[in-house]
Design a protein around this nucleic acid. Sequence first.
DNA 1: GCAAAAGTGTTTTTATTACACCCATGC
DNA 2: GCATGGGTGTAATAAAAACACTTTTGC
Lengths: 223, 223
Amino acid sequence: MKDYNKASYNIIETLISIFTVEKGVVKILLFKKKNDPYKGYWMLPGSIVGTDETAEENIENYVLENCGFDNLFIEQSQVFSTPTRIIDRRVIAVTFIGLIDSISVELKQEIPDTVESEWFSISAIPKMAYDHEQIVKKAIENLKTKLINSNFLKILFPSDFTLPELQRVYEQILDKKLDRRNFRKKFINLGLIEDTGYKNEGYTGRPAKLYRFKEEIEERELF
Amino acid sequence: MKDYNKASYNIIETLISIFTVEKGVVKILLFKKKNDPYKGYWMLPGSIVGTDETAEENIENYVLENCGFDNLFIEQSQVFSTPTRIIDRRVIAVTFIGLIDSISVELKQEIPDTVESEWFSISAIPKMAYDHEQIVKKAIENLKTKLINSNFLKILFPSDFTLPELQRVYEQILDKKLDRRNFRKKFINLGLIEDTGYKNEGYTGRPAKLYRFKEEIEERELF
DNA sequence: GCAAAAGTGTTTTTATTACACCCATGC
DNA sequence: GCATGGGTGTAATAAAAACACTTTTGC
């Protein structure tokens, strides 16, 4: 029978794929690695779990301190535990998906100026350190199944958005083309959004109507 | 920046909710705890992860040695990392869902006779040690979303089954009643199953036709 | 007035729901 | 012959897919 006294001990790290949508483009936040190994490669934000905190608390604090995002929405993605994933050291990664809207990205807290970070389109992920590319892939795959939940969308679009913008998000994450008319019909019929009466002017072409999610909508599955 | 040299070390355990279907009833395999704390309570099978194995390898080996199941289908469920979940000790649990068909349960390998194990209907889970009840709940919740995948069903029903039996599985996991005619229609139209020509005789009432999943079906989402 | 992107409606097809009676077997 | 559980069909409704032209703006 299991005996906790005869245990091996492992290092646990958290890693998070934080997604946002900026002008209809789905982006992920990455940090640039400053030292070898993998110097100059990009990596996921994350830290090492202490003995008196949950993995969730750990990543939430880390993100607040190092990315400046308060109230980030997070959810577990997957555990990666290949013994050689960090070369000569055994580190188990508990990975997360985080969502943040683009307004909150602008309003972020002061953070130390020690890391070089950048938002990358999910269709142009740069070269990644360790197994982080695989972790990002899994996160995007998991995102697909989350996209059918109304709450996820509300988190990404807390304020006004256009339907073509929303459609582009679906197209990027599901990685396929959708019909504009059918997409509109479906979304409007769901009854989750309302017309703000405003338009998205100043761009080329006909301005799109601005919508917002209704205040009181309950979490539900959309598809 | 993250420094693996300044890490805290944690004990990692694996825990698995193994499900099977026996005569239309969805069951989970539990072990009885022999010592305090929680003596006489039930617990999930699982073990402590060493430094030279993945969590998956760990649980697969454990299940083979302690349950006698080879080639068990497994998938990650969730990580539980509340610092106090194992009373006075910090143990992080990486939890899994396992599926096995009832024939393979019969054919299991020889195992040491040291643990008392039992299959419980998921509608009658006994009192559980630690946070295992919560872990089982999460596993069942995750099962729901997996039930729409054709491969999951094929794993649970490798040989002949009846449609009423399959329907009962859906009803238990989704926790709602389904219409018999509509269920049949849907399943037969999906084109995944074929009539074996045999019947399930010897029970009360009209014998049900026996079906099997077609050999060549590809993994797909059903709903 | 032309390019760019958004908005709109109808028809067809497919899936879902609702619903009630007959059938095969064991005893 | 009766209790038990299984098998079957149809109509109504709802959702999804396919498809092309018009509108509004910036330049």
